[in-house]
Design a protein around this nucleic acid. Sequence first.
DNA 1: CAGCATCCTATGCGATACTG
DNA 2: CAGTATCGCATAGGATGCTG
Lengths: 138, 138
Amino acid sequence: MTAAAHSQSASFSANNDGERSDWDAGNCPVRDVMNQISGKWSTLLFEALAAKPHRFGELRRMVPDISQRMLTQTLRDLQRDGYIERTVFPTKPPSVEYRMTPLGSSLFEPLSKVLEWAAANHASIKDARKVYDESGLA
Amino acid sequence: MTAAAHSQSASFSANNDGERSDWDAGNCPVRDVMNQISGKWSTLLFEALAAKPHRFGELRRMVPDISQRMLTQTLRDLQRDGYIERTVFPTKPPSVEYRMTPLGSSLFEPLSKVLEWAAANHASIKDARKVYDESGLA
DNA sequence: CAGCATCCTATGCGATACTG
DNA sequence: CAGTATCGCATAGGATGCTG
């Protein structure tokens, strides 16, 4: 179907039957997926795990600003959606490894392109903001 | 630099100088850009405007669940970042047209790939969630 | 038609303290 | 080491009513 199923015309709009506003919540693929990967830390963790698996403490050091609460929670959410896999090694003290699943890797492919775009065009955006803010519309 | 500058190793982690946690806020391109496009409605509006320009009321009908408050605000934010352009036609009553800028289109290119992925893999994700939730870890 | 102003709630996220 | 449990706040976003 591609994204075209969402874009213009009558796809997610006109419904002359007068029912189903079923695009709410988990029924809209775009929102359902974006909602997850758009968390404050999800993409950073994707990047961190893209190259190779890492342990909890490693991820913590790689993304220094994250709180352990959010690290735990974000990892759980990503695992729940099937993007990453959690493996516990019953050593003492325990060690836990997180790695991307095939599903996660397949998402990261297009996603990484967006992240590259972000890095490449960050300056343009900051410029645009400056222009907008200084045109007296603030 | 690409996304690799963010991923593993010492890029955004180890800083033996012991200063700058400057990745906070608007200095991290990934977070700065993602923060915007990850709003609840941003991607839907991107899709809506990708094909052709639209007026306020049209967008409202294309994304029925959005409140006009959020429609206005999201459009303003996207305009501020330089993704879309707002043109007022001084007719009576007034009409306003929104259209993608080149910057917006260039972002939508990689972004649309993610949205296509979302549509294509939505089922897998819902499955993964089901499995996770039913494995008694809920 | 295309908004702006106000009020209110839900929740994402951070800080801190405790555990197997 | 790799978490869990509480508390608290800031803000994204919804509902409603008014305007040029």
